[in-house]
Amino acid sequence: MDFSIYDVINHTVILAQVIEDPDIIGQMSDAWKNFVETGQIWALLIGMFFGYTFANFTRF
């Protein structure tokens, strides 16, 4: 297959996003606070504990 640069340019889709709130650090901070306040952090830690324990039982 012989592709020229013009074929690639003609078949390329350009995606763009409009950023409503450029405060990325603030968004990450809000997401972390929500993660902790809703108790999802405990679900993560408990899941990691049981997953690690189960993986060790199945290793033998």
Rank of each mutant, 00 (worst) to 15 (best):
A16T: 12
D30Y: 12
S4H: 03
F3P: 05
K33M: 07
G26C: 05
G47A: 01
D21R: 12
F54V: 14
M48G: 02
A55F: 10
F60T: 04
F60W: 08
T58L: 09
H11Q: 15
I19R: 05
N10I: 02
F49H: 15
I25M: 07
F57M: 06
V36Y: 10
S29Y: 11
F49R: 08
Y52I: 10
F57T: 04
I24W: 14
E37D: 09
F57N: 07
V8P: 00
I25N: 14
I41K: 10
G39M: 02
I9F: 04
V18H: 15
Y6K: 14
G47Q: 03
D7K: 04
N10R: 13
I5E: 15
S29P: 00
N34S: 13
W32G: 00
R59Q: 10
Q17L: 03
A31W: 02
S4E: 06
A31P: 00
I46Y: 00
M28E: 07
M1L: 15
E37Q: 10
L45M: 05
G39H: 01
G26Q: 01
I46G: 00
R59G: 10
I46D: 08
D23C: 01
D7H: 12
F57A: 03
H11N: 15
N10K: 08
I5S: 08
I14H: 14
D2N: 07
V13L: 07
A55W: 11
